[in-house]
Nucleic acid binder design. Structure first.
Length: 853
RNA sequence: GCGGGCGUGAUGGAAUGGUAGACAUACCAGACUUAAAAUCUGUUGGGGCGUAGCCCCGUGUGGGUUCGAGUCCCACCGCCCGCACCA
């Protein structure tokens, strides 16, 4: 009897696939194409279990599609620009390029043993000039088409390091290195006009049938289409040029509940007023401190400053409202000014209570409901409510009806216009950093901002930069900025902003279709391979990456780089969960915990002890594997201990792919045991007499066909864990089978085929041992025989009033009437009914009988 | 704060609105063994009774829709993800 030796088997089959160029993707008219793509990794340096899970899922799909006769494209690349490389340069003095390319080499080496069906000839890295020169070319095309423009925008500014900070580099309102309170600063920045596509990006979501509903909903909310009223309050005694304050509201029906007007600290009026009002100026400075994230702004305490200024209510000019500067109003949204209606907005309610402003209801749940509110009354817009201070439409109406009526009324009376607005803002792509794709424009004293000539591309990053001083090294570079104006030829300066890394990842999927072409894409290849048939990645990308990619596909169409048919580049999307692990910690003297690696810990009776010293360790429930918590399991260790097939099998089993999976040592062992068991079965069958007859051939083959059916369904619907459960069950059946040699051989070869997308190496070896034709990877996927799937009889539970009371065995094709008759004749039913006639009997054929007593 | 998701035995989880707990882990018992490991077999949601069997309770909490709800609807609690310069 031979032993299952994954190390030897896996290396052998990987070489065989490699030699055969099994996974090389070539355009062909013979077969339908299938493009499967997992979100490409950031080259952090080490692969982790999350990668293994992500790529294994894609690999299962890719291998299944190969077996079902598709021409499969399954590429891999590196999202290689980013902050971490610059941090490594600052911390360790390594050049970002060296750090990145070394990490790529390391991670590729770690990925290879997994036996993924990747066409490595198409590998790309976004930090390579061969990639980013095309991004620069497209930038120029998009600038030319008016898709890109410049405007001022606010960034996090570290006043000590004198540098722009990423949101990630702001911790509790302070710069992560300097510890200084972060300020907001305005810079001129580059923007994509994604907001022009708001409606288009929203509408097209409906066509994405194979996207998760939750992702579409999140994108829809992010784009945030709203219908509202834009109008102006006229001011009383305001500075010149500020006789009106424009506001936008989605709830014009609550206009009579207005009790104050709020403006952003960045509003032109606020800026004007603070010139003569030191207190206000101090308040605005305070407001401009802290991070710029929406989260930071929305969770901060709501602060206001009474400007002393008032405005007239548009319906009653005698009624004056105070004007506050408030820290929660963003200049980027709407007009940077709002009217506050405390009665129907929790945030305004909090504000009004704090500053003792009136709370005036405009609608109530009923005619006699109390007018005094203890909290904001915010019913669903579809709910009918009583308008005690309505001014348009019926007294009883829904919020939606009231909004429409209010807009119509206001327009008829010259108080503003109904407008449709989107929450989606333009995409700021400027980054004041070195390790990114240089923006290919030149600043010329005479010609202004001029795009670089395409023949001068790539504009390469200079190699000789220093990171000793905070800030963007491109700014300080002695010569790199110097260039000739592409328009007039005079000396000019290069743009030193680089592009947001989201730009890199917004078109890599298109580049994979012609990764070495000297244009960004090749139409023929793009038309053949696009769209991505199945895209797989984490939910954390549900909004930004996917939305930007959808926009970019449209922008690439407009500039002639993609066909219109690729406007929605991802036909199907799957969002997978994370790999988690328990955290082991012991307290330290200073009260903070010491984290221990799983391999330093021994588990006994549900408790954990340090292998070194034996003291007990606290177990914190599973969390995302993270270096800082030491709760990581290195895939390489797993592969060297058990083999890649075990790692692959385990990350797919146990947990549904969209949910998190917890890595446990026992789970990995169970996976390995199962693979050994399958190996032993194969061995046993090989040793059987070729003419051996046995018992239960038909039962075994029936089970086999059911398994083919179930596993196929499972793989097609991302039910990998359920498919694996079926494979466990079938393995047990086969193991106990006393069937003859031919039936058992057929069963084990089919088992190998069904397992092959998950455990390709083991499957190849079994296939070869049993004398299968060619390699299993290209063998046609087994087909379930429909005739073998139907049983002659079915067991049907009988419920009485919805509770299961008995069961009956009936022929599968028995009529409803007969089933009902047999059910009613059942002893348990007669007992319960006690002579009374049943009120109703529901028979669901093949499923259930429910008797209503 | 806002948007989205999730919540089922000791544990990971299964279940097109139709027998809740498939499959796996852990535990316990048994077989094999001098013994252990490995392997194989079996039991295991809780409670109760007149214990070959039957009954009650049970999918975060509370309500609702339905002949029937883990699944659909509403509210609450807890956890996770995103919030535009992390990728």
């Amino acid at each position: 009897m031979s032993r299952y030796t994954p190390a030897e088997i896996e290396a052998r089959w990987q070489q065989a696939w490699d030699k055969n160029e099994t996974f090389r993707a070539v355009r062909s008219a013979d077969k339908p194409k299938y493009y499967v793509l997992e979100m490409f990794p950031y080259p952090s340096g080490r692969i982790h279990m999350g990668h293994v899970r992500n790529y294994t899922m894609g690999d299962v799909i890719a291998r299944y599609k190969i077996a079902t006769g598709h021409n499969v494209l399954h590429p891999m690349g590196w999202d290689a620009f980013g902050l971490a490389a610059e941090n490594a340069a600052i911390d360790k003095g390594i050049h970002p390029a060296d750090w990145t390319y070394q990490n790529i080499a390391d991670m590729r080496d770690q990925m290879m043993p997994l036996g993924l069906s990747i066409d490595w000839s198409r590998e790309l890295a976004t930090c390579h000039p061969g990639y980013y020169q095309h991004q620069q070319a497209m930038f120029i095309d998009m600038l030319d088409k008016g898709l890109i423009y410049r405007k001022n925008a606010i960034v996090n500014w570290d006043p000590v390091d004198m540098t722009v900070l990423a949101n990630e580099q702001v911790e509790a309102g302070r710069g992560w290195r300097s510890g200084a309170l972060v300020e907001r600063r305005e810079l001129t920045q580059w923007f994509f006009k994604i907001s022009e596509y708001s409606d288009e990006l929203l509408q097209a979501l409906d066509t994405l049938e194979n996207w998760p509903a939750k992702v579409k909903l999140m994108q829809s909310n992010w784009i945030g289409k709203s219908r509202g009223l834009q109008f102006a309050f006229s001011t009383v005694d305001a500075p010149d040029g500020h006789d009106r304050i424009e506001v936008y509201t989605t709830r014009p029906d609550t206009l009579l509940g207005a009790s104050f007007v709020g403006i952003s600290p960045d509003h032109p009026l606020a800026k004007e007023l603070e010139k003569d009002n030191p207190d206000l100026a101090a308040f605005c400075i305070e407001c401009r401190k802290g991070g710029t994230t929406e989260e930071a702004i929305e969770t901060a305490e709501k602060l206001g400053f009474d400007t002393g200024l008032t405005v007239r209510h548009p319906f009653d000019t005698a009624h004056e409202l105070p004007v506050y500067v408030a820290n929660f109003i963003l200049m980027d949204y709407g007009t940077g000014a709002i009217f506050g209606c405390p009665a129907h907005d929790p945030r305004d309610f909090e504000f009004a209570t704090k500053y003792d402003l009136p709370i005036i209801s405009t609608y109530l749940p009923s005619e006699d409901a109390a007018d005094e509110l203890s909290e904001a009354y915010v019913p669903a817009k579809t709910e009918k409510v009583f308008y005690n201070r309505g001014f348009a439409g019926d007294q009883w109406q829904t919020g939606l009806e009231a909004i429409d009526a209010a807009i119509a009324f206001c327009e008829a009376n010259g108080v503003g216009q109904g407008v449709t607005k989107f929450r989606l803002r333009d995409w700021g792509l400027s980054r004041q950093r070195y390790w990114g794709c240089p923006i290919p424009v030149v600043h010329c004293d005479d010609c202004g901002v001029v795009p670089e000539k395409k023949e001068n591309l790539p504009i390469e990053l200079p190699r000789d930069v220093d990171f000793d001083t905070p800030g963007n090294p491109l700014d300080r570079h002695p010569t790199w900025r110097d260039c000739a104006c592409p328009s007039c030829g005079k000396p000019a300066k290069r743009e030193t902003d680089t592009m947001d890394t989201f730009v890199d990842s917004s078109w890599y999927f298109a580049r994979f279709t012609a990764p070495r072409a000297d244009t960004p894409t090749v139409m023929e290849d793009a038309e053949y391979w696009m769209n991505v048939d199945q895209y797989i990645g984490g939910v954390e990308h549900a909004i930004l990456h996917l939305l930007y990619s959808r926009f970019f596909a449209r922008a690439m169409e407009m500039t002639g780089h993609l066909p219109k048919s690729a406007n929605e580049p991802f036909d199907a999307l799957f969002t997978q969960g994370m790999v988690t692990h328990a955290i082991y910690q012991t307290p330290r003297q200073d009260g903070r915990p010491t984290f221990h690696y799983p391999e330093e810990v021994e588990l006994r009776d549900g408790k954990a002890y340090l292998k070194d010293g034996g003291s007990e360790v606290e177990i914190i429930p599973s969390a995302k594997m993270s270096k800082s918590k030491n709760n990581v399991v290195d895939p390489l260790n797993i592969i060297s201990n058990y083999g890649a097939d075990t790692a692959r099998w385990f990350v797919l089993s146990d947990s549904p792919p969209e949910r998190d999976v917890e890595w446990t040592a026992s789970g990995a062992e169970a996976a390995h045991k199962h693979l050994s068991r399958v190996w032993n079965i194969c061995d046993r069958i090989s040793a059987m007499d070729k003419d051996a007859k046995g018992e239960g051939d038909e039962d075994l083959l029936r089970a086999m066909h059911k398994t083919i059916h179930d596993v196929t369904m499972g793989v097609e619907s991302f039910g990998f864990n359920a498919a694996i459960a079926k494979l466990y069950a079938f393995t047990a059946t086969l193991q106990k089978s006393k069937a003859g040699h031919d039936a058992q051989r057929e069963a084990v070869m089919t088992l190998a085929q069904l397992m092959s997308p998950m455990t390709p190496h083991l499957a190849e070896d079994i296939w070869a041992q049993q004398g299968g034709d060619g390699m299993i990877v290209t063998a046609p996927w087994p087909k379930a025989d429909e005739a073998m799937l139907v049983d002659d009889t079915v067991t049907m539970p009988i419920q009485i009033n919805g509770k299961r009371r008995a069961e009956i065995n009936v022929p599968a094709d028995m009529s409803k009437e007969e089933v009902e008759k047999i059910a009613l004749a059942h002893e348990a039913v007669i007992r319960t009914l006690d002579g009374a006639a049943p009120k109703k009997v529901i028979v669901v054929p093949g499923r259930i009988v429910n008797v209503v007593a």
